[in-house]
Structures are given as structure tokens and as C-alpha cells.
């Protein structure tokens, strides 16, 4: 019961924040709202017991993204141009995509179902055998670092490349950005 109330409150805050985010025009406000949005999503993940996912969401969404967005605003403009084109077609595309996604969740197993494919496929094997095979007490760590080691290596390479790219962009531009700022003021 309490779980349902918590979920309903958090989800309504999430939807309200998303609606407010769409209506805003000042980019700075949008950055603040986006940070709050990912904090709310992280809280929902914590309620679902996915603490690691929640922490990633909060660190990337509320921490790093805020800094990157602010850096982008500092380098470019602070307001967005009001769109002149009618937004019925994009709205229609969004509604159809959302409806298809919701339709896709209909034949998913219930939350916490013991017969769900995720529970019966290899999860049992990992839970029982990973300590013997890998000798790491944390199952998630042994899956990420050993069973899926190459996958994790690829992810690390991608994240490293992205970080280098962002650092190059941010460290190159400030001179130009500042000149533009002076022209504005």
C-alpha cells in the first residue's frame, strides 16, 4: 500500500516536471528542471530496488549533465528561439511511439514474477556458481567484470572516447564564447 502511494506521488511529480520542462523557454530553467527530473527518476529506481541504476541516473543526469548543459549555455546562447512551425506532426509521432511502447509492455511478466525469463534463464546459474567460478562475493561485479568482460571493456572505450571529445570541445571554445558574450551585453 505504502509502496503504491510512493510510486504514485513520485510518478505524478515526474510527469508534472516533464510538462513544465516542455513549457519553459529559458534554457537555464530547463537545465534546473532536467536535474530535478533525473533526481525523481533516480528516486523511482531506488523504490524499485535498483540502487546502482539509480545512482548512475543521478550521477549522469543530475550531476554531469547539469555541468555539461551549463557549459554549453556559456558557450552558446541563453535563450531558445520560439518555434514557428506547428507541432502537430511531432506530437502525433510521439503519441504513436508512446502507445506502441505501452502496448509492448502488455505481454511483459509482472514485476517480481519468479517465472519471468530474466529469472529462469542464466540468473540462477550466476547466483549459484559465480562465487565458485570467479571467487568474487558480489555477483553483479563478477558478471560485469568477468562473464561480460569484453562488453564492459567496449563500454569503457566508448565512455573514454566521449569524455575526451567533450573535454576537447570545452577546452577549445572559451575564447570564442566569451567574445560572443561581450557582444551580447
Amino acid at each position: 500500500m505504502a509502496e503504491t502511494i510512493i510510486n504514485v506521488v513520485l510518478f505524478s511529480m515526474l510527469v508534472l516536471t516533464a510538462l513544465a520542462l516542455v513549457r519553459m523557454e529559458r534554457l537555464f530553467t530547463i537545465v534546473m528542471l532536467a536535474g530535478v527530473f533525473s533526481l525523481l527518476a533516480a528516486m523511482l529506481f531506488v523504490t524499485l530496488d535498483a540502487v546502482d541504476v539509480a545512482f548512475t541516473e543521478a550521477a549522469v543526469g543530475a550531476g554531469v549533465s547539469t555541468v555539461l548543459y551549463l557549459g554549453t549555455i556559456a558557450l552558446t546562447a541563453r535563450g531558445c528561439k520560439p518555434s514557428v512551425r506547428p507541432s502537430t506532426v511531432p506530437l502525433l509521432v510521439c503519441i504513436i511511439t508512446g502507445a506502441v511502447l505501452i502496448w509492448g509492455t502488455l505481454d511483459m511478466p509482472n514485476f517480481g514474477d519468479a517465472e519471468a525469463p530474466a529469472e529462469v534463464h542464466v540468473a540462477q546459474y550466476y547466483l549459484t556458481e559465480s562465487v565458485k567460478e570467479i571467487d568474487v562475493p558480489n555477483v553483479v561485479t563478477s558478471i560485469l567484470a568477468s562473464y561480460r568482460g569484453f562488453d564492459t571493456l567496449g563500454e569503457v572505450a566508448v565512455i573514454f572516447a566521449a569524455g575526451v571529445g567533450v573535454l576537447l570541445i570545452i577546452s577549445r571554445m572559451p575564447g570564442q564564447g566569451r567574445r560572443k558574450d561581450k557582444e551580447d551585453s
Partner: peptide, 13 residues
Amino acid sequence: VATLKFFRYRSLG
């Protein structure tokens, strides 16, 4: 801190 630095210095570099 990033927000306040943005307001103080107008840049994050």
C-alpha cells in the same frame, strides 16, 4: 557549485 560558478564567471572553463 557548477551553477554558481556559471553565474559568477559566465563560463565553466
